[in-house]
Design a protein around this nucleic acid. Structure first.
Lengths: 171, 171
DNA sequence: TATTGTTATACTCTATAACTATA
DNA sequence: TATAGTTATAGAGTATAACAATA
């Protein structure tokens, strides 16, 4: 991607080239990283990144309702139902009614689910170490943690997307 | 996601909690950011992020071959053909044979394509400013740029993914 | 033979809307 | 009425393999 220098952007305050560079480097590096991670998870565990994230959440909590599970994984409810159904069919989780709230579905990780996490995690850590940690000094990694935690929290505080107007796509 | 404290990972050297935090904050923040960006591009330009990236590349270069266009956008050739066909149908690019190499297809951005970029870019910049730049000091943004540029280059130098063994997914 | 690109095909994933059931 | 979740459905996107044409 090149700079937006040759546009008529009216009064829009353009970002400094350094700002743009930070943005591009950030998104591109993470895209590449995620791609490698996806490959590893698929190869060693037969699961997608989303499924791995769900299993990790359940591995910590033991069991969660669908709504609790949806928090943290930006997702539509139906999308989560779809993934949970896949995980259940694979025997990695079970689904059942909640005693506290009859409306809720409790999703619980199975032994096989924990086994899958245990099988996949070492490779996952290896990939992130090789691609991320090895490229960054301990000091910089610490800075990165602070910066991106702040960014994450900042975005999380954003008003819900429902505020944004929808337009039909042109194709 | 919680920590992997309760696994038998054998001899695997576990990352420090701070390392994990950096990784999680990084991927989560970028996911959230990309989600907002996608919304904006769709709403104001009717295009996806991938299509925006392709248009940005073409907007700088004027025209590129499919192979050149594929560089930088991690993508299968067929996937690029699919996206290029969509962009062509929408009148944002044209495709034609290359005079230099009869095998190559030259993809060129049209006036309408440039107009779309110009229409979408201000909002794109606004979103990134609101979500990213505003959360980070100038100094930290500069650090972020340096760090992530290094990570990106590091990952780019990785051996091709064909080295990774493929396994069938379990479901 | 290697490279460029397209096509056919199959599959994964995601979102929307309508629906059921409980609070 | 509001909330939790599912289902039906439709569409976008992606990858693989087979293919044609040129270098």
């Amino acid at each position: 991607m090149t700079g937006p220098d040759d546009f008529d952007l009216g009064d829009l305050k353009l970002p400094e080239p350094q700002q743009l560079e930070a943005y591009f480097a950030l998104t591109e590096a993470v895209s590449l990283l995620q791609h490698h991670v996806e490959q590893q998870l698929r190869a060693e565990g037969g699961i997608s990144t989303v499924q791995f994230q769900l299993l990790m959440a359940l591995n910590g909590a033991g069991q969660l309702t669908m709504t609790q599970l949806a928090d943290g994984v930006v997702y539509s409810r139906s999308g989560l139902t779809y993934q949970a159904a896949l995980l259940e069919k694979a025997g990695l989780v079970t689904r059942g009614p909640s005693p506290d709230d009859e409306r809720a579905t409790l999703v619980a990780i199975t032994d096989k689910g924990r086994e899958t996490v245990g099988r996949v995690l070492p490779g996952h850590i290896q990939v992130t170490r090789r691609l991320l940690y090895e490229a960054v000094s301990a000091e910089d990694l610490n800075r990165l943690r602070g910066i991106m935690s702040r960014v994450r929290d900042h975005i999380r505080e954003e008003p819900p997307r429902s505020a944004a107007p929808r337009r039909k796509r042109t194709f």
